[in-house]
């Protein structure tokens, strides 16, 4: 579903992504982890072209995302990729329901009543049925992030990207967001998550990609990764995690 072929990216002279080769298959859940500054966020943001690449090929469901294309074509591609941000980025001037409904209506041309019904359905799915009329500023962080997930799902994307979805949350709210993500995974959604939540990774991921300094140093199943990490850097990372 998502293929990274020899991806390289520079910020000026800083080589941010180095020779990335990897694949997220349909229905897979991939967790990308690693120390900060390793390029994890940069990598996931290249998938929907929020970041550009210098060389290589990035295929999403067969389409080359970074090929030269009209902005209309790019917008259409982006609408098929769900993206959840670390800072939620809900639209503060719209109610929760409107946040979810707005894009199917304005980008896809879905009519209002269909969009509204679907939005309510998605709100039920993330456990916030009674918050339809509330505004983002009135919700807790965990609730806002769940709305953000519903908003992304409203576009019916074949794959969802999560950029550190729980890093900005207070610890007691992390669980509610992770359980939504877990249920998505159980329903067979293709997911790529950048996260520090190792328990989530252990339980839900099909693959773990360990990154450091712009490279993917190790790809393994959770069992392999947590039980018997190969790369010395990965070993050090895991032991640092366990230390606290």
């Amino acid at each position: 579903m998502i293929c990274f072929n020899e991806i390289n990216k520079w910020y000026g002279s800083y080589h941010a992504l180095i020779d990335i080769n990897a694949e997220v298959k349909k229905g897979e859940v991939v967790v990308v982890c690693g120390p900060s500054g390793s390029g994890k966020s940069t990598l996931i943001r290249t998938v929907n072209r929020l970041e550009e690449i210098k060389s290589g090929q990035l295929l999403f469901d067969g389409s080359d995302i970074h090929a030269p294309m009209t902005s209309m074509a790019l917008n259409r591609l982006r609408s098929r990729i769900g993206f959840v941000f670390q800072s939620f980025n809900l639209f503060p001037h719209l109610s929760v329901l409107e946040n979810i409904m707005m894009s199917p209506m304005r980008v896809r041309g879905v009519n209002r009543s269909d969009a509204k019904a679907k939005a309510q359905q998605l709100l039920d799915r993330v456990g916030l049925s009674n918050k339809a009329g509330a505004y983002p500023a009135q919700l807790s962080g965990g609730q806002q992030q769940r709305v953000a997930i519903a908003r992304a799902l409203a576009m019916e994307p074949p794959a969802m990207l999560f950029d550190e979805p729980t890093s900005a949350l207070d610890p007691e709210m992390v669980g509610e967001v992770l359980s939504v993500m877990r249920s998505l995974a159980n329903d067979g959604m293709t997911m790529m998550c950048v996260t520090h939540e190792m328990n989530f990774a252990r339980e839900v991921a099909d693959q773990i990609w360990f990154m450091d300094a712009g490279r993917i140093l190790e790809t393994a199943t959770p069992k392999e990764f947590f039980g018997n990490p190969q790369h010395p850097r990965a070993k050090r990372f895991l032991s640092d995690l366990r230390a606290h």
Partner: peptide
């Protein structure tokens, strides 16, 4: 982040 979120959802610049 607002512009990013809107573009990520598939909105054009004008939208």
């Amino acid at each position: 982040g607002q512009t990013e979120a809107a573009r990520a959802l598939g909105h054009s610049y004008l939208s």
